[in-house]
């Protein structure tokens, strides 16, 4: 489904602030893989996701999505393959437009925008049904501006938008990090449900070890722009926090010392 080959990304090249964010990253995702990505600050997790999404060009390597080399494609052209949810709940929706308009924008992902109506009545019924399943009461607020919703509601809506038209690959970039624990849990449950129902191939960045271990069928730990740990299948099922820390120490030659990851 996704093939990342020898990916390299350097920020501020040639300046004192030069930072190698990704170096020689190789990664192959199979259909239906649900991969959790964990790592400290500056490990390259978000850079990896943004490189795949085409937010910025990469310096070296190739990205192949569904047998198409998308390395040189601009962000909006890759969007047809991708569903994305960002860390910032404000990022995934248009605040001054209402709920149904936002959903309608997502429903047309990867399609030419024409002079047909932006939202049709048939769609409205469909959206209402889908919103009902979120169980947030949003089905009765379809003409409310998204700016009026809470962060959690907006993130749930973004998640629905990202999966409305089943993407080849779902990219979740710490999408629960900005939410309170209870809401975060709810959004995570929803993620599991939507991914499971639609059999979506998923890359989910998180800083929460527990979530990384609990969710998905494969776990990747990143460090200094490399993939330090990559475990899947049964091995992943039996994984504990202690195992993960030991694996990290063995592969990177250093102790895992990141409060944000260890405390959560």
């Amino acid at each position: 489904m996704l093939e990342v080959k020898k990916l390299k990304k350097v920020f501020n090249a040639g300046t004192v602030n030069e930072k190698v964010a990704l170096s020689d990253v190789n990664l192959t995702l199979n259909d239906g893989d649900f991969i959790t990505v964990i790592g400290g600050n500056g490990a390259g997790k978000s850079t990896l996701l943004n490189s795949i999404a085409g937010v910025f060009p990469v310096d070296e390597g190739h990205i192949v999505l569904d047998h198409v080399d998308v390395t040189r494609l601009p962000e909006h052209k890759r969007a047809r393959y991708l569903g994305r949810v960002f860390q910032d709940p404000m990022m995934g929706t248009a605040a001054d437009m209402n709920i149904e308009e936002n959903l309608a924008l997502a429903y047309r992902r990867g399609r030419m925008r024409t002079l047909r109506w932006g939202v049709t009545n048939a769609e409205r019924a469909k959206y209402k049904e889908l919103l009902k399943q979120l169980d947030l009461g949003l089905e009765n607020r379809m003409s409310d501006k998204v700016g009026l919703l809470s962060g959690g509601q907006r993130q749930a809506l973004t998640l629905l938008m990202a999966t409305l038209k089943a993407p080849k690959l779902l990219l979740l970039d710490e999408h629960t990090a900005a939410l309170d624990p209870k809401t975060a849990q709810k959004v995570l449950d929803m993620t599991q449900k939507l991914v499971g129902e639609n059999q979506l191939t998923t890359l989910m960045v998180t800083h929460n070890m527990q979530d990384a271990i609990r969710l998905g069928n494969r776990l990747i730990m990143m460090n200094n722009g490399h993939i330090a740990v990559d475990i899947a299948g049964e091995e992943k099922q039996k994984l504990t926090r202690e195992d993960l820390m030991a694996l990290f120490a063995a592969s990177s030659g250093q102790e895992l010392a990141n409060d944000r990851m260890l405390l959560s």
């Binding site: 909006h76 969007a79 404000m90 990022m91 248009a94 047309r108 992902r109 990867g110």
Partner: peptide, 14 residues
């Protein structure tokens, strides 16, 4: 939507 949130708009393939 472009006047609202450009990142979101690009993510929707526009």
């Amino acid at each position: 939507a472009t006047g609202n949130n450009q990142r979101m708009v690009r993510a929707q393939g526009i």
